[in-house]
Design a protein around this nucleic acid. Sequence first.
DNA 1: TAGGCCATCTGGTCCT
DNA 2: AGGACCAGATGGCCTA
Length: 268
Amino acid sequence: MSNTDIETAKWVLKMEQTPDAAMFNRTSPSVSPRPSSPTSSWSSGGSPAPSSPSSRSRPGKIRRSKSLKKAEKQLSEEELQELRLKVNHRERKRMHDLNSALDGLREVMPYAHGPSVRKLSKIATLLLAKNYILMLNSSLEEMKRLVSDVYQNGHRGHHAGLPSPAASLPSLHGPAMRPSPPILPHSTLIKPEATFSVPPTTSLHRPATHLSPKDPPRSSASVKPQTRPLGLPTNPFGVWPIPCSCPQCPTDLSVGLPFGKMPTFHTR
DNA sequence: TAGGCCATCTGGTCCT
DNA sequence: AGGACCAGATGGCCTA
């Protein structure tokens, strides 16, 4: 063991005796404070990884950043500790901001909200958001097509006299989107892109987070389907573009809609 | 008890 | 140079 290693070990030992007070002053509203580990008050989770296989790590050595090494020479121990606290605080704040943004995203996502429903995981939130956007895009395109079709045909045909499609579409920001069946936060082990790399018009029938049957949801509250109106298809958001209700169009959309198949308007 | 999810610490890299 | 961003490691909590 080199002198550097010994010094580093001393430094780490010293740091371990210095709890990060800021850790107990967390402000994130979504996560309850978590005290640091009793065995490692300084670095509750992030103790150095001497045997890490990572390319970033140096096996057998405790990782130290260049700036910290430099600071170690220039600063006193107190100053160094202060610097470490500062860096940790910044990183913590950054992650809290990220979590706040995720909370904001969850709030506008059409899934069951409430105290009895476990909130979506981070990955599930992102996947759901992606599918939600795809669904909205698809709905918009479908609506555009329908409107232009109707006006091109001069309101002739069996759709004449029906309310405008826009009128029958649920508001994307209104209460029509809620309540909706909860999304199933399933496995996050599957690469999102590999799972959802289907065209927008075909991906929307797959629940955003229903990725693997082997990975059940974490709580029954999050999977118990809420009642949905008869005739509406099962889908990740509980709402589809309202299908054509004319006699010439299929009416039972609640069954037999396989993943990858998008219900379409009747757009003769 | 295993596995999923998360918060945190930390060093490296990139950017301003 | 300092801060932001990223990723690895670690340990705690929770659920099936």
